[in-house]
Each structure stands twice: as C-alpha cells, then as structure tokens.
Design a protein around this nucleic acid. Structure first.
Lengths: 194, 194, 194, 194
DNA sequence: AATGAATGAGCATTCATTCAT
DNA sequence: TATGAATGAATGCTCATTCAT
C-alpha cells in the first residue's frame, strides 16, 4: 500500500519543492524590488521555469498572498504560544512590518482584494483574542493602530525602520514586546492549497 | 511620412496652459493610479503631446514634485492665515491626505529623493511654527503622527478615507480642525521655476 | 487585453531557426542601413517578435558580433583550406568587404569595443599565418592595408565596389585572389554560444 | 547709397552671425557625436533657436555640406599658396582627415548626394593641378589613395589618428608634407548662398 | 509537471519638423 | 527674422502571458 509512495512520485515531490522555492524567492524579490517586481525575476531566483510559476500561482496576487500567508501564520503561531500576550504578538507583527514592504502594504491598504482582506482579517482575529495592553483599545482600534504604525514605518535601513516603529507605538501609548524573528517551521513549506 | 494633417502647432501661447494642464492631469492620474502611472496617460489626459510633457518636466520626479509643491504651498498658505492654528492646518494636511495618494506617499516615505525630502521639510517647518495642540508634541513627533495617519488612510471611497483619518487622529489624541479644501489661488498656475 | 487572436506561440522548436533568421536579417539590414539600423527592423525582417530578438541577443553589439563572427569564421576556414595562400584569403576578405558595410566598419574602426577588437584580432592572426605576397609586408602592415582598402570600398553597386577594391589593392602592390563567396557550412547555423 | 547699410539692417547682420555660429557649432557637434547628432544640439550650442537652424539649412545634409565646404575651401586656398606643392596640400588634406570624421566620410563615401560629390570633385580638381609626388599617380589614383588613407584613419586619440595616417601614406609610397592647420580666413564666415 | 522560448502590447524617451508669436 | 514650444512618429526595451516540447 505504502509501496506506491516510495518509487517516488517525482513529479509531485518536485512540485512541492518548486512551490516553496517560489515563495521564498518571491519574498526576497518583493522585499528588494517591491511588489511590482518582474515575475520573471522570481522564477529565475527560484531556479524554476516561468511556466511553473504560473502553474502554481495564477497571478501576482496569488503569489503575494502566499508570501503573506506565511507571515500571518507565524503571527498566529506566536499567538498560540503558551506565554503569548498582546505585547509579545505585537512584537512579532512589528518585526514583520520592519522587514517586509509587502506586509506593510497588506496591513495598510485594505480592500486590495478578497485575499488581502482575508489575511488582514486573520490578524484582526488574533488581536481580538487578547485583552488591552497599556491602553484600553478595542480590536478595531488595535488594527487601526497597526495600520498607523505600518504607515510610519519607512526608511532605507532596517535599524531606522525599527526605531521609527517603536517611536510610533510609543506615541500611541501601546506597549510592544521585543521585535523578534518568529520560528519558521516546516509547516510553512507544505501548504499546497493554492 | 507624407502626413499632411498635423493637429496644428498652437504656438507658445499655450505653453503656460499646457504646463498647468499637465500638473492637473498628473494630480488626477497619480491619485488614481499611483506615482508609477504611465506618463503617457498624463499627457493624454492633459491633451498634450508626449514631447511637451518632457519639455516641461524632465522626469517623473519633476512632475510629481510640481504636483506636490502645490499641495505644500496650500498648506503654507493656510498656516499664514490670520486665524490659523495647528488644528486648522492639520485639517488642511488631512484634507490632502484623503485626496491624494501621492501626498500620502510624500509624507510617509521620506528619503525618496532630495525633492521629496525638501517638500516634507517644508511641512515640518510649518508644523514647527505652532505650539502643541491637544497634546504636547514636538514638531518631530507631529511629523511622525502625520506619517502614521497617512499610513492609516486608505480605502476606496473618499468618505471612508476621511472617517479613517479622523479616527486615527483621535487615537493619537490630537485635535484636528475641519477637513476643508484650501483655496486654489492664481499663484498655483504661475509657478514656472520647476 | 481581451485579445484572443495571438499569432500562436510555436514553441521552442523554432528557437534555433529564429536565431539564424535574426542573424540573416541583421546581416541584410545592417548592410543596407548601417550598424545603427533599428533593431525592430531586424526583428520584423526575421519574422520574429521584438522580445525574441532581445532574448537571443542582449544588445545591438551582441547581434552585430554574431553577424561578423560568421564572416570571420569563413575567413578562418578559407585560410585552413589545403591550397590556401595569402592571396586567396585576401580574396575572401575582399569579398566580404564589398558585400557588407558592417564588415568594412569592423576592419576600419578598431577599438569600438572588446568584441570588435577580438574579431579584428582573429583576422590579424589569420593574415599573420602567411608569408608576404607581392610585397614584403608584416601582418600589421597587412592589416593596415586591409583597413585602407576597406576605406576605399564604397559605391552604390556591387560591381563598383569590387572594381574599387581591386584598384586599391593594385595601388598597394598587393596581389589578390579572385573574389569568391566562401562556402556557408552548416556550422554557421549552429553557433549558440553568443 | 551706403547709408542704408549703416543704420543697421540688424536682422540681416544677426542672420549672418547666426549662420556662422551654426556652422561652427555643427562642426564641433558633428565631430564629437558623429553626423547623426541631434540638430537640436547644434542649435543649442550655437545659441540659436531651432527654427533659425531650419531657416538657414533646409536639412542635415545642407548643414553638413556647409561645414565641409569650409574644409574644402581651406584646401583650395592651400593649393593657391605661392609655395604650394602636392606634398603640402596632402598635408592639409590629411590634417582634416585626422580632425573630422565628417570629412573622412566625405572623401570615403562618394555618391552620398550631389553636394558631397561636388565637394569631392573640388578636391579632385585641386589634386589634378599638381604633378606626381613620390610616385607617378594620376589624379584619379590620388583620390583613391586619399580615400584609402581616409579609410585607415581611425582611433580614439588625435595622435593615434595622425600616426596611422602617416603610416598609410608611407605604405602607398606617397610623400606627405607636415600636418598643419590651415588658416581660417574671414571669408569662411561670409558664405551666404545656402 | 517543468521548461524555456515566443509573442507583442506597453511605456519611456528622443528628435525632426512645424508654426504662432 | 528669431525664437522656442508643440507635436507625434519612431525606437529601445521590458515583461506578462502563452504554449510546444
């Protein structure tokens, strides 16, 4: 029964690997060149043919969504940690904000499509799961605050963006945990529902 | 080659008119499609040849600068009014924020070139000329707050953007005057030093 | 946008054919209009999309180099023939001179880029492999002589250019073999290393 | 009678000055950027409007012809000098060859239009007026030799071009006088027959 | 399922030429 | 007669998308 799985369904295995490589490449390319970067650059960096990119992702939005989906999942995972708090989750959110222009846009520009709204909604849900932190803000207000910080985050260097983000949170009177990289689990590589 | 029917060269009488038309068109096109909109679309909307656009504005930045320069000048003029206050000026700033994506980007993304920084600096100077309003904020903090509101402002409809902007200011505890259209004086049409 | 009738993508079977067609077209267009001829004209004559041209040849120089590379290879092949002599090789060189403006420019204007110099160098090497003919000239002097003849070769008709070239060689006291078309071997179509 | 001339027919005086300025500018621009340089660059360098350029010179050829006309006239003047010899005139010709790409093309590429042929013909006439020098060459052969040297003349630096030119003449066994700048007389500024 | 070449629409930019002032 | 702006065709180049292999 399990024999069939072994003689290598090479095609399927390669497919999954390609998909992951494309997401990784897209994350890097979008970060470097912005969300309008040529898709050919993504394919090249992933070491994959153009056609394969289109097989996995119908369009630019689908690819971007896949990238951001990982980000959001990491936030959800951070919120699921035993010692999680609003403060610590905001630390993860802000970590992403300072790393990824695309993520900034996600949380800033709502309504850019059903996918983006869905992702933003998941962040909203996460935040709603916590009580107020430092100030008594509703989940809606928290999302607005996140958008505001997103809007402020800009700058050529990572350090500068981090500094600005923290100042922005302070101005809002919201306490933020340390900006730390969330763990990337193997799960990130397995999504195949696109 | 043997085209006889040239749409007629209207001579240099139209020069000033063309320049103004280009700025107006650019304002609209940039607002709708963002700062990377095709310049050909601007020329078309202005009813002007491609070459004329390039004669008046050496590059995209020059054109965008001209557009934003008008915005900033209106803010400066609002600040110079006899009954001006930080609150009323923020009303004008926010009015622009809700109208123009380009203006949002100007105040959000600093360092995108000397021109942008100069324009943002002028806004900074204006804000620095007022005392605190509703909270005791330095000019730097005020600029950050403006950037944050800029970041939050998004939405398909004008009404939505206005609502969001006001909520954002409230979250910051800063009082904002009524969002009102600044007067467009003839001076705006005469700038020829770009 | 809603165009349904794409002229059909014939797949990569045509890749090699396209490359050859581009070189052929470029040879003709460059010969007729000079090395600055619009590349779009080359693509059109080759019956190929603009993009394909750029895929095969990164820039104008790469295309010109490919064209001239064939010429030089034919000269090298002529020099490798069992009964080759300086006289016979000069016949081939001169044959090209009278056929191709681009080739004339290659041998006339040195230093127009590393590629051109490399190609000219290969001609130099070929000439250096023979002893003097009709006069005792060094390889350097021979190259100069070739450049001089190149410079003299001009005229609207092929016959005129041939006549001038032969007169020029006579003035230099150098014997030249019959102007004959070198064989185009299949090898010319296979180069894929550009 | 001569009164009319004084009260300044300003228009006419300016016109002549502009014409001369255009020729000078064209000489420089064509030398730097080649014969296909933008005419707007010529007008700009001459400090003259685009329209004025077109008033004086119907097209690019007319302008180029005017530039070369000066060169040829200088050669004719050199030939008219009391101590002129074929050797000395060839020195002047070669001086021009090493200075001006346009002049090279004139003597190299015949048949580029009636104007060019006429100018080349004048050079031919000049050479025909002298006896053989160093070798017994007919005027036709001399013109061919000039074309050959023209063809050889190339190189990024003036010194290199001069060196090559002299080597080329040596290879032809023709003696050449020193390369010297011909005097520019006021006459060059007065041609108004275009 | 992957590949990589083909295709052409689209955008930026330049420049020859015309023409009102 | 000079001026300088207007015009748009032409060209280079890029890139999203399709499709034979």
């Amino acid at each position: 029964m399990t024999k069939q799985e072994r003689p290598a369904n090479q095609g399927r295995r390669v497919a999954a690997r390609n998909r992951a490589a494309l997401i990784t490449a897209a994350r890097e390319v979008f970060a470097e060149q912005g969300l309008n970067a040529p898709l050919s650059a993504v394919a090249r960096r992933a070491g994959v043919g153009q056609g394969s990119l289109y097989r996995h992702f119908a369009d630019r939005v689908a690819l971007a969504t896949a990238v951001l989906d990982e980000n959001v999942r990491q936030i959800e995972r951070a919120a699921a940690a035993p010692d999680a708090s609003l403060t610590s989750v905001l630390g993860v959110v802000t970590w992403h904000l300072t790393r990824s222009t695309a993520f900034v846009d996600l949380l800033r520009v709502r309504g850019d499509g059903a996918e983006a709204r869905a992702l933003a909604g998941r962040v909203h849900s996460v935040l709603a799961g916590f009580g107020p932190a430092g100030r008594d803000l509703s989940a809606d207000e928290l999302m607005l605050a996140v958008a505001m910080v997103s809007g402020a985050v800009a700058g050529p260097t990572l350090a500068e963006r981090e500094r600005v983000a923290l100042r922005a949170w302070r101005l809002l009177g919201v306490e933020v945990g340390p900006l730390r990289q969330p763990e990337t689990t193997a799960a990130d590589e397995q999504s195949d529902s696109a």
